[in-house]
């Protein structure tokens, strides 16, 4: 399969079931909402060492937020309910509660409830005030710039983590440019985040290592500098490979994001130095979800 001269491999991305929640962070203005949202989603690229994967889903206009202020919608993904609850509490406690003028609200109403302001309220040392408005409980915690307002709980959703595709091209610069365009296109879609810096990851990994202590190590088959030294997957014209990882609330969301991203990359074509699109998997034995690249790209636009 060729799109604009770019070869689409007959392979699939393997993704895993995760637990996810959405929170809405608002502030006096968008700048401060983003300061808080950027902090909440900081150091959340991979569950391997960060505890969760998180990203800003989109900007929220004042009329979209519960308190009528500008804000940002944030998605967090973790491997278990327990870990998600832990990460949520830590991150909101350290990055939203602390951020001037901020407030935090549930972004998902359905599903099992995770504590949001429920435990953070104790920061109020007895001066915290509960308000039940329209059946939802909010906590008003006195802080040095006024009050921190937090909804008591947020809903949790089953989710899909680890959807991905790899972009192979002529030069590092060309592949990066194509990836930037892909991430920009994907960020327009709801219910997905690309958790790595700028949405792009360069250190794809394989399972196992020559060192006993390591569970995973560099994916040497896709390292261009090892083309002659290892059993390489790369043809001679490939000088750089980058990957885009997608976490989404449902497999449909991940699928749509992959489609949008791959389409954006393929627009650059061979003239733009893009040669091939492939995907990462573990032979289909580990993940619950498989996203076959050719199948996705053949589907009519949703």
């Amino acid at each position: 399969m060729l799109i604009n001269g770019v070869a689409i491999d007959d392979t699939f991305a393997e993704a895993f079931g995760m637990k996810s929640t959405r929170i809405l962070i608002t502030a006096h203005n968008l700048k401060w909402a983003y300061h808080s949202a950027n902090a909440v989603t900081g150091f959340a690229t991979s569950v391997i060492a960060c505890g969760c994967e998180a990203g800003i889903e989109r900007k929220l206009a004042p009329e979209e937020t519960p308190d009528g202020r500008p804000g940002a919608s944030v998605l967090l993904f973790a491997v278990s309910t327990k870990e998600l609850a832990k990460q949520l509490e830590r991150r909101v406690g350290q990055c939203v509660l602390t951020s001037p003028t901020s407030a935090v609200f549930a972004g998902i109403r359905e599903g099992e409830k995770l504590p949001l302001g429920k435990n953070l309220r104790y920061f109020g040392d007895g001066f915290q005030i509960s308000k039940l408005i329209d059946g939802r409980r909010y906590w008003r915690v006195p802080v040095m710039d006024g009050e921190f307002l937090a909804e008591e709980t947020t809903g949790m959703s089953k989710a899909v983590g680890g959807g991905n595709f790899l972009i192979l091209g002529d030069t590092q610069e060309q592949v990066l440019t194509a990836c930037e365009a892909a991430v920009e296109a994907m960020r327009k879609l709801p219910n997905v985040i690309m958790p790595f810096p700028g949405g792009v990851v360069r250190s794809g990994s394989k399972v196992g290592s020559k060192y006993k202590a390591l569970m995973a190590s560099t994916n040497d088959a896709f390292c261009p500098t090892l083309r002659g030294a290892t059993k390489s997957e790369l043809s001679e014209d490939i000088e750089a490979v980058l990957e885009i990882v997608i976490d989404g609330l449902t497999d449909v969301d991940v699928r749509a994001a992959m489609k949008a991203g791959i389409a954006a990359v393929c627009k650059f074509g061979t003239d733009g130095g893009i040669r091939r699109i492939t995907a990462g998997n573990y032979g289909g034995k580990l993940g619950q979800f498989q996203f076959h690249l050719r199948e996705i790209m053949q589907e009519a636009a949703p």
Binding site: P66, D67, G68, R69, A103, K131, I133, D134, Y138, R140, G146, E147, L149
Partner: peptide, 13 residues
Amino acid sequence: THNLNFLPLLIKS
């Protein structure tokens, strides 16, 4: 005198 952010929510309800 203060700005309390829960008040817009209350008024909206």
